[in-house]
């Protein structure tokens, strides 16, 4: 099965790139390829002068020091509390003393507004708080690039707003590169410097948010306005409705 085909994109540095598309459009697969979690069957993924599709695991791990990722379900390690989760990459990869690490953790928690919640376990956090803690963990190593997989899905409007604001402000503040995968059109367009729109494993549009809004491509307009029917049809069936009603076919081959 091919999830992506003929995709060629460039992600600008020190800006927020938003990859949008419906379910099954291949945007999560694209993110996993860019971050090196999966390798493409063919093609290249260039990051900082290295082809992620070909480098060794050791080299990939070196590059990962410059990457952070906020997962859809936060993916905090559930055996560690909030502070230990954020300190985890620092303990693993730096020789900093415990007190320095504690200071860094406090600073990162302050940035996401979670200072004072150090001792809570991930299971005790609400969805929005878990997302923020995951954000703080992704920032722990001061990465050049942070990836966000559906940062607002499953959150109430206020929490979602907090997260999108955080992405926008911290991208500007720390001069990092953000790559956001989302199906949330309004949040996506509001924080994006660069938008990539995907449909059925292909890129159908790439450009600034304004150029996307102003596009006259019917598929783009349907996606932005959230219409049920259009070039992307409402019905997923590929057989004739009347035929199916009149000639009931056995669903299991005899």
């Amino acid at each position: 099965m091919i999830a992506l085909n003929g995709v060629s994109i460039a992600i600008p540095e020190q800006a927020t790139t938003v990859i949008m598309g419906g379910s099954g459009s291949g945007k999560t697969t694209l993110l996993r390829l860019i971050s090196g979690l999966d390798r493409p069957n063919s093609g290249c993924v260039w990051f900082d002068g290295s082809n992620l599709a070909e480098i060794s695991r050791r080299q990939l791990f070196t590059l990962r020091m410059k990457m952070g990722m906020v997962f859809q379900y936060s993916a905090l390690l559930n055996s560690l509390n909030v502070e230990e989760n954020i300190a985890f990459p620092l303990h693993e990869h730096s020789k900093l003393t415990d007190s320095v690490i504690h200071t860094i953790v406090t600073m990162k928690l302050e940035q996401v507004g979670l200072r004072g919640f150090e001792q809570l376990m991930p299971s005790e956090l609400s969805g929005g708080m878990a997302k923020r803690a995951a954000f703080a963990r992704a920032l722990a190593m001061d990465p050049k690039v942070v990836f966000f997989d559906e940062p607002t899905s499953g959150l109430d409007p206020i929490s979602a707003g907090v997260i999108t604001t955080l992405i926008q402000s911290l991208t500007e503040l720390t001069r990092m590169t953000s790559v956001v995968v989302t199906h949330d059109v309004h949040a996506g367009l509001s924080i994006a410097d660069h938008v990539i729109l995907m449909w059925q494993g292909e890129v159908i549009a790439a450009g600034s948010p304004d150029s996307i809004r102003g596009s006259d491509d019917a598929r783009i307009q349907q996606f932005i306005e959230g219409r049920a029917d259009g070039p992307i049809p409402f019905s997923r069936s590929n057989t004739n409705y009347l035929d199916d009603l009149l000639n009931p076919r056995p669903t299991v081959a005899a």
Partner: peptide, 17 residues
């Protein structure tokens, strides 16, 4: 469950095997 909740991927992203 660590696989389902992407904790294994998170470790991978933190350059921890």
């Amino acid at each position: 469950i660590m696989r389902v909740t992407e904790q294994l991927d998170a470790l991978e992203m933190m350059a921890v095997n």
